[in-house]
Amino acid sequence: MAEIREALEVLKNEGYKLTDKREKLIQILSKEDRYLSAREVYEEILAKYPSISLDTIYRNLQTYSELGILEETEWDNERAYRFRCDIDDHHHHFICTKCGKSKELLTCPMEIYENQLPGYKIMEHRFEIFGLCDECQA
């Protein structure tokens, strides 16, 4: 529950109005330890807020991502979001393309690439591995 309070505090500090819908979005994502598409979030919130639009979900998820509340990735031409990891250090993920479950990878391969780019300045990077988790393979 501390992560929900922290996320709401970030929204408040950035000047966003704290609404029940915004809090419900955060609750949905905080209870799942996996990446969710906007459509999955939409389908879950629809029961409580039947008039909410998919565009509203997309906009809020993107805002949460920009504020660092959520992590964002893309596969199969669709963005997916998960609550920010507890790991504060730089890390990457393995992401199951069937269920969206992720596992943190604590090793970063950037040294390999930095050595191949002398004189270049790398500003940022992402490294994700996609596949099937052990449960989805079974």
Results as ranks from 00 to 15, higher is better:
A2T: 02
I4P: 06
I4E: 07
E6K: 06
E6R: 01
E6C: 00
A7L: 03
A7N: 00
A7M: 05
E9I: 04
E9N: 05
V10N: 00
L11A: 03
L11I: 04
K12Q: 03
K12C: 02
E14H: 08
E14G: 00
Y16W: 12
Y16R: 03
K17I: 15
L18R: 01
L18T: 08
T19S: 02
T19P: 03
T19W: 06
T19Q: 01
D20N: 13
K21I: 07
K21Q: 08
K21Y: 08
K21G: 00
R22N: 08
E23Q: 08
K24N: 12
L25Q: 06
I26W: 05
I26K: 04
I26L: 12
Q27M: 12
Q27V: 09
Q27G: 00
L29R: 04
L29C: 09
S30I: 07
K31S: 08
R34D: 00
R34K: 15
R34N: 00
S37F: 14
S37N: 00
A38H: 04
E40H: 09
V41D: 05
Y42Q: 10
E43Q: 14
E43A: 15
E43D: 15
E44A: 10
I45P: 02
A47N: 13
A47C: 09
A47L: 13
S51I: 08
S51Y: 09
D55F: 12
D55W: 05
T56N: 09
I57D: 03
Y58R: 09
Y58K: 09
R59H: 09
R59W: 09
N60P: 01
Q62G: 00
Q62E: 10
Y64M: 07
S65E: 03
E66P: 00
E66W: 11
I69R: 03
L70P: 03
E71Y: 04
E72A: 09
E72S: 10
E72P: 02
T73Q: 06
T73A: 08
W75K: 01
W75F: 15
D76A: 15
D76I: 12
A80R: 10
Y81A: 03
Y81T: 05
R82W: 07
F83Y: 10
F83G: 01
R84F: 02
D86F: 04
D86L: 10
I87M: 05
I87F: 01
D88Q: 03
D89Q: 01
D89S: 02
D89M: 01
H91S: 04
H93F: 11
H93V: 11
F94H: 07
I95A: 03
T97W: 04
T97E: 07
T97S: 09
G100N: 02
G100W: 03
G100S: 06
G100I: 04
S102A: 14
K103M: 13
L105W: 02
L105C: 04
L105D: 04
T107P: 00
T107I: 14
C108A: 07
P109S: 14
P109H: 08
M110S: 12
E111F: 10
Y113E: 15
N115Y: 13
P118R: 15
G119I: 13
I122M: 11
I122Y: 07
E124I: 06
E128R: 11
I129K: 13
I129R: 11
G131E: 14
L132P: 00
L132A: 12
C133S: 14
C133N: 14
C133K: 15
C133F: 14
D134A: 15
E135A: 14
E135M: 10
Q137E: 15
